[in-house]
């Protein structure tokens, strides 16, 4: 066997490994039902902030804990403990992506959150006259 063949095989093996590895490590987008059915498994949950419920952030107790309620795209709501300080303008957020897992109590423990606030642009884009 020529050396170039060995190299080619190694390269292909690593490339396939990397491809499967990236698929394997990837998380899954899910709704709350699915996340709550599988406590302890990591999901990305997309939804909105439920503004009718209280946002609790008590920095003097724990500066990295924000508790709030989210509503997923199916309309289901769930209490969320986010292990981060309350983000600036959280109340104005339009869309949330929570990264974390459900716990045994039917609550979602988020490690991280991506937040999009396009609403503040759109409000002003809608020029009425």
């Amino acid at each position: 066997m020529k050396r170039s063949h060995i190299i080619a095989i190694v390269i292909i093996a690593v490339a396939v490994g990397a491809l499967i590895g990236s698929l394997y490590d990837s998380s899954t987008y899910a709704d709350l039902d699915q996340a709550l059915e599988h406590p302890g498994k990591e999901y990305h949950v997309v939804g909105t902030l439920d503004r009718s419920q209280e946002i609790v952030y008590e920095p003097s107790l724990n500066a990295s804990l924000t508790t709030f309620t989210m509503r997923d795209l199916n309309g289901k709501t769930c209490k969320v403990h986010l292990a981060k300080a309350k983000p600036q303008d959280f109340e104005r957020s339009e869309r949330l992506v929570l990264i974390g897992e459900a716990n045994e109590n039917g609550e979602f423990e988020a490690r991280d959150m991506l937040m999009k606030c396009p609403s503040k642009y759109n409000e002003e884009n809608k020029v009425t006259g």
Partner: peptide, 17 residues
């Protein structure tokens, strides 16, 4: 600080008050 009121998972605060 004693984080009695809180969820067990989040006792490790990374921020200072």
């Amino acid at each position: 600080m004693d984080l009695r009121f809180l969820n067990e998972g989040f006792s490790n605060s990374e921020d200072i008050l």
